[in-house]
Every structure is written in C-alpha cells, then in structure tokens.
Design a protein around this nucleic acid. Structure first.
Lengths: 336, 336
DNA sequence: ATGAAAGCGCTAACAA
DNA sequence: TTGTTAGCGCTTTCAT
C-alpha cells in the first residue's frame, strides 16, 4: 500500500457515513449542517464537523431538493443574454439569488415563443423556486409554471398581464420624454428605430408618437429591425437613404443605437450636429460609444433585486412601474 | 359547484397518479417517458400518454436527479457574465448544453478567488454533470469538483494546468501577431493596456514584448487596469498623459479597448492616424465601435461547443489550443 | 409486456 | 439532546 495522494474518491460520502464516523445519527448531522431545527450539544457538533472535514463530506443537493420540494434555484429566461441589458439584469439577479443561497439557471429564448415555452416547461419540471421571464410575447403562456405553483415575474413590461406579477418601466412615458428632449432641441423631423413589432416596442412607438403629436409635429420615419447592433445598423442605413431624412432619431434600445451610430459615422454625418440621437436602456455600453449616448436609463439593478424578492415573498400579483431617468450625454446635442 | 377555471393545483401529480389513472404500474410510466429501457405496448403507451395529458403530469426533476445521480445540468463560472466575451461564451454554452437536455447554471466570481471557490463548492454539492471555469487565478482550486468526480474544463487558458482539461487560444502568439501588425504599420512606440496582473494577462504581455524585442524595438509604456470599459478608459488616459506618448496601443481585450477609444476621442486624437489600436477577443462590440476595432478574434462558439462536449466525453485531461484570427478593421490604420 | 419493490440521500416528525 | 424512521418521486432490477 502506497502513501500516495487520495484516490479520486467519487465522493460517495453520505450523511450516514458522517453519522457513523461521528457516532451520532444522521438526524444530528442534518441538524448541524442546517443549524437546526433542533439544537445540538456543542461537543457533538464539534465531532460532526470534524467528521465532515475528515470525510470530505458534501451534502447531496438533489436529495435535499427532493425532500424539501425545492432545488434552491431560480430560473431566468431572456431573449438574448448577450444583450447588455439582459446581461446586466441577469448578473444582478444572480447576485440577489446568491444572497439567498439560490443558484441561477439561465436560458435564452432567442426571441422565439416555442423555445421560450420549452424552457418554461423545463423549469417547471425542475420545480425551481421561481422564474423571471422577459418574454418575446406580450401574452406569454406561463401556465406550466402556474400549474406547478411556481412564482413568476414578468420582466421588462410596462403593463400588467393576467394575474402574474410584473415589473418594468413606463416605456411609453419614457419614450415620450426622450422624444420631447429632442423636440426641445428644435428638431421637427424625428425618426424612430425600433424592434420588429411585438409587445413592448409598441409602447415606445406610442410614446414617440405622443410627443410628436403633442408638439404638433408630423410623424417621422420608422425603421424596424432586430434588437441587435446589426439590426440598428441596418435600420440606421435605411433612415439615411430617405429623401426627407430626419435630423434626429429616437432609438428604442442602446444596442440598436450602437448600430445606428455606426451607420451615421460611415455616412460622414456629424453627431449630434447633423443627426441627434437619444436611446433607451442606459446600458454601460451607451456611456462608451462615440459620441456617448443620451439615453433613458432603466434602474436595472433595483428592478432585478426587487424581482427576486417578489419571487420569494410571492405576494398577490401586481405590476410595479419603475422610474426612468434621462441621462444627458453627447449624442443629443446638449453639449457641443 | 361552479364551472370556473381549474384551481391552481400546485401540481402534486406524481408518476404514481399517472400509473393509477392509466391502470399500469409506475414502472411503465417511467418507460414511456424515457422511451425505455423496456418496451411498452403501443396501446398501453397511448393510455399513459393520455393520463399524463389529462392529469397535467410533469416529472419531478429532483427525484430523477437523485435516482440518476445527475441533475442534468452543467455549471459555468466566469469573472463577469456582463463582459461580452463571457456573455457570448455562456450563450453558446447554454445552447450546446441544451442540445443535450442539460440546463445551465451561471455564476459570477467577480474576479474574486473566494467567491469562485464558493461557487465551485456549491456546484459540487449540486452534483452537476460538469463545470466550465474561467478562473481568476492561474492556479484554480478545483479540488471540490475533482473530489466529487465532476468533470471540469478550464476556459480561456493557453497553458495546461495539473490534470484538468483546458482550452483556449495561444494568447502569447496572438498578442505577438497583433503587435507585429502594428509594427508593420511603422510604429516604434507601442503601448500596452492590460489587466491588473494575474494569469493569462502575463501571456499577452509576453507576446507584446516578444514582438517588440524581435523587431528590436524598445519596450513601450504599460497601463494596467480592470477588464472593463472604465478600466480601459482610465488606462488610456494614463497612456495619453505620458511625455513620450506611444503612437499605437495593443489592448488586451475588446472591452478595455472600448474604454481606450473613449479616452482617445476625448483627447481629440485621430484614430488611427495619431494613435492606432489593435485589441483582443473579437467580440461583437468591437465591430461597432468607432472606428471599428482591428482585433484578434477568438473562436468563441467553437470553443464553447467543444468545451461542453469534452465535459461529456470526459477523456483524459488535455489542453487544446485554438487558432486566433486577426480581423482587420479601421483602428489599426490599414484603411485610411 | 408489465408489476413489485428497493433505494438514491436527505429532512423532520415522533419517540425516547 | 439525540435516535428511529418514514417518506420525497423517480428509475430499474428482478420477477412474472
């Protein structure tokens, strides 16, 4: 027999093993691991702890999950975790979940309702403790979750839906504010770059229209495209080709705005002198573009934190609206 | 009695319930759900399927996980899932895992070894089927995983470590290639923006030095900072303040390069005429900066796919190096 | 082709 | 304060 390093014991150490080693029952092991629900004599506790250390015991989460009916995980499904807005959101969610000892399951729907639904079902099967959903659809089918009694909160919404709780900023009011800012700069032909139809986008479009109408301005040109840099780029190019080209554009997301900026740069237009931009989200990327983007910041982190809490407090369904803040930077023309 | 909607049955439907309804045993239910391992008569199968539908049965993943010893999930821990490089990587990993019916647990270490370790332990407890780790440290402690017999692959490395399998590009050679490109443009004073010490960064630094030395050029100025836009911005500013300011900079990551670009723009310097840039990673963001970044693209998606496969094929530990590709764009000066 | 039953590892009610 | 024990819901061997 050699004295070489520990063989890669595929850790089949169970609480029973620990109990045996510490000369106690498995119950006691459980009590010390979870600090309860029964008290354990300090001396006994020390023995158990020692046994755990020596044996390299690691509780089996699956068994615990089965017994408790909770895997101590929450799930989030977003259209694209690569989008800075969702990336930031997910990161904050992971932090918040972690503080409660929960892990985060991340899934991408790729803007496809079928895939979204598949993930929702999978999460339901896993009996996760809660699901955060930034749906592709204005009318997501969360029935698998509801049926499993799993709390859900809908993200990135500005209107309530059924009896599922939801959060988000007032997209319409925010968009309106952004466009009003542009109007304040004297623009009268203000274009819109926005997602390819669907839910929430409608509201930003409405807000854009609200501001225009209120100011007695004509409806500007619209370019629709995917929520991506490339989508924004293409949309920007289309707007630039227009005979009656706008002098300002409201872009419904930072990520698209980055693409628009590129189209503008390539065309040699001066921003903001010849084309002003205001966008939406307030992602970190918006601060580092050139010129930096004037944008409507969503309070991502607090939304994330609250979303996670409401999963755990599962109060009655409700919708909570967060304030949006106009961050003035260079792209709107405030600073020359 | 009303005919109102189904009460929110907190889905306590078990395979037993299904069995009873379909007048078969639980074993048969399992067989039809998993298409095996025993065959089931078509007629029986239909009855079971019907029962599943009627009862709204959804298998309990925790029970399955306990029985099988596998939760059918893999985990990934990265320094910052918000960093486009890791965001893209994780997304690709999620796809690859999903194809195998596995979910993805995402955790951030925030560049802190202690947090990383905490996540690794948690993953070990959860008995995940594999862990992908982009460690903060050059010598990560993966023992909890090893002890649990969980396959690990180290990400974003260019050198092997112990007997754990790893993947990554040849950072040193890549950096060298990037710097050589700059040298090819006639630059003789080439700065470096890089992370605040640690592992992999050393290699990019070495590559930078290699190119300089080989060309008989003096060592340029170095600015270190976090892997963030802000970190790059600050680093860029420091380089600009230098008396003997460089005419080109090799930035060790796209995300920092975005920050450097901002510093450059603010100083009014023309890019690439007065300051050329080449960066590293090839993230989507690099294509949309202004000017667009000439960068060393890492084959993120194929690395992600391969990383996931090797988790499942758990061959002997090995290190595989991926090729890097210099994407020529505007920031280096190739196009005026 | 199907049923019966054991047991994965843990928690907590119930005893002692 | 600690031990005994009964499951949580599923998979699968062993019978039939």
């Amino acid at each position: 027999m050699s004295t070489s390093g520990t063989p890669p014991e595929t850790s089949r150490v169970t609480s029973q093993d620990v109990a045996r080693y510490a000369q106690v029952s498995a119950a006691v092991v459980s009590y010390v691991i979870n600090n309860g629900p029964r008290k354990v004599a300090p001396q006994t506790q020390a023995r158990v702890l020692e046994a755990i250390r020596v044996l390299g015991y690691r509780p089996n989460a699956a068994a615990r999950a089965l017994k408790l009916g909770s895997p101590e995980m929450i799930g989030i499904v977003v259209p694209d975790s690569t989008n800075p807005f969702f990336a930031e959101f997910s990161h904050a969610v992971e932090d918040a979940a972690g503080e409660r000892g929960h892990a985060l399951l991340l899934a991408n729907s790729g803007e496809t309702a079928a895939i979204e639904r598949k993930h929702l079902k999978a999460f339901a099967s896993r009996q996760v403790d809660g699901v955060l959903l930034a749906s592709v659809s204005p009318f997501p089918d969360v029935s698998p979750l509801i049926a499993a009694g799993i709390p859900v909160v809908l993200l990135d919404r500005s209107t309530p839906f059924d009896d599922v709780t939801s959060i988000g900023v007032d997209l319409r009011a925010g968009a309106r504010m952004a466009v009003e800012h542009l109007i304040g700069h004297g623009h009268t032909n203000i274009g819109l770059v926005i997602g390819a139809q669907q839910s929430a986008e409608q509201e930003r479009e409405q807000g854009w229209l609200d501001a225009l109408t209120e100011a007695g301005l004509p409806e500007g040109p619209i370019a629709r495209g995917p929520f991506s840099r490339a989508g924004g780029y293409a949309a920007g190019q289309r707007l630039l080709k227009l005979a009656h080209r706008p002098t300002a554009i409201f872009v419904s997301s930072d990520i698209q705005a980055i693409g628009v900026l590129r189209a503008l740069h390539e065309s040699g237009l001066d921003i903001p002198a010849e084309m002003a931009i205001v966008s939406f989200d307030g992602s970190p990327e918006s601060e580092y573009s050139w010129p930096s983007l004037t944008t409507l910041r969503q309070p991502v982190r607090s939304m994330a934190v609250d979303a996670v809490s409401s999963l755990f407090h599962k109060a009655d369904s409700s919708h909570t609206t967060y304030p949006t803040e106009l961050i003035i930077r260079r792209s709107c023309g405030c600073t020359p």
